[in-house]
């Protein structure tokens, strides 16, 4: 049994202008000790899926319109909010992109980390603070003992992100969801933070869902990838296979459109057009207006997630042709 299984998840947002279909039937699984990277551009539904798993979706305007989220075999969507709170933080935790706005500016970092132990484990504030020092040491914040009483603004961006990691790991959860954890950081600090996260993940044998748009970061840490577009998974595969030969034109376009550090290169391949409006997703395959391979069938029929190999899926009518073209 996988640690987490998302089955046919649908999420919509009801707004004054209409219904925005943010997630339209997402399926994925994460095992213990495994890293799943969810790749997608803004508006692809990658973060909304994560919020639904964590149970922190804004309801309303958000609404889970269907599907199941099985965590250790239990459907989280059927749990009462009270039970859900016990899962959140203790068994699964989340790391956000912007550490400065996710931390409380008027509480010291020690109090914020310690609070987890007070609430979930019933410890005293003093013991909580001692635990906080221990965790700050663990995420390698220098002089943790002296700095435990300081406030978020007194730390640098990289250190704030480590504090977020410390909070996420505090109760040794089984699953961590990291939503663009290094996007706001500089490359040298990004490398520090990703290394730390990977090391702690190994140590605690946690499942990790890494949400990102950075194809470089994904290649560095992921075991498998799910590529999302307009609320659907368009391709899902082990990391080595997808980079070697993508089986979906969108994945292929993404990989070709990034400039490489090791190549000077000529003109970049650019995916034409813009991501679709979620209130008005094109019929058939959502990618069809931007796809170089689109045929009539793509404009009418939604492509099923076809099996490319036992570990690999692609939602394209022409995945065979795409795969052939990319292996050549």
């Amino acid at each position: 049994m996988p640690l987490l299984e998302v089955r046919d998840l649908h999420v919509e947002f009801r707004t004054r202008e209409g219904v925005a279909k943010a997630v339209n039937g997402v399926n994925y699984t994460v095992d213990e000790g495994e890293t799943l990277a969810v790749l997608g551009e803004s508006g692809s539904g990658k973060s909304v899926t994560a919020q639904a798993i964590m149970g922190i979706l804004d309801v309303p305007p958000g609404k889970i319109a269907g599907g199941e989220i099985l965590f250790k075999g239990r459907d989280l969507l059927k749990l009462k909010e009270e039970e859900r709170r016990k899962v959140r933080g203790a068994e699964m935790a989340m790391i956000f992109q912007d550490a400065l706005s996710s931390l409380n500016p008027v509480l010291s970092v020690g109090e914020q980390i310690g609070e987890l132990f007070v609430v979930h484990k019933g410890m005293s504030r003093k013991d909580g603070k001692a635990k906080a020092v221990e965790l700050m040491d663990r995420v390698r914040i220098p002089a943790a003992k002296e700095r435990v009483g300081q406030y978020p603004h007194q730390f640098s961006g990289g250190m704030r992100q480590r504090i977020m990691i410390a909070m996420a790991l505090a109760l040794e959860p089984n699953l961590i969801i990291a939503d663009e954890p290094t996007t706001a950081l500089d490359v040298t600090v990004q490398a520090q933070v990703m290394d730390l996260l990977a090391e702690l993940q190994r140590e605690l044998n946690m499942g990790l869902i890494l949400i990102t748009h950075d194809l470089g970061v994904v290649a560095d840490v992921a075991d498998k990838i799910a590529v999302m577009y307009a609320g659907r998974i368009v391709e899902q595969a082990p990391v080595h296979e997808i980079y070697k030969a993508p089986a979906h034109p969108y994945t292929k376009g993404l990989l070709e459109s990034i400039p490489r550090l090791d190549q000077k290169g000529q003109e970049l391949f650019a995916i034409k057009g813009l991501p679709p409006n979620l209130m008005n997703i094109p019929p058939g395959c959502a990618f069809n207006p931007r796809c170089p391979m689109a045929q009539d069938v793509c404009r009418t029929d939604v492509p099923p997630l076809a099996e490319v190999s036992p570990t690999r899926r692609s939602a394209c009518h022409f995945w065979k042709e795409t795969l052939d073209a990319s292996t050549r």
Partner: peptide, 20 residues
């Protein structure tokens, strides 16, 4: 700085030396 940039190639993961 250069060694810290993630390269979009999972095969390069093992044999890249990174200066942290």
């Amino acid at each position: 700085l250069l060694s810290a940039v993630p390269v979009p190639d999972p095969d390069a993961r093992e044999h890249r030396e990174r200066i942290i």
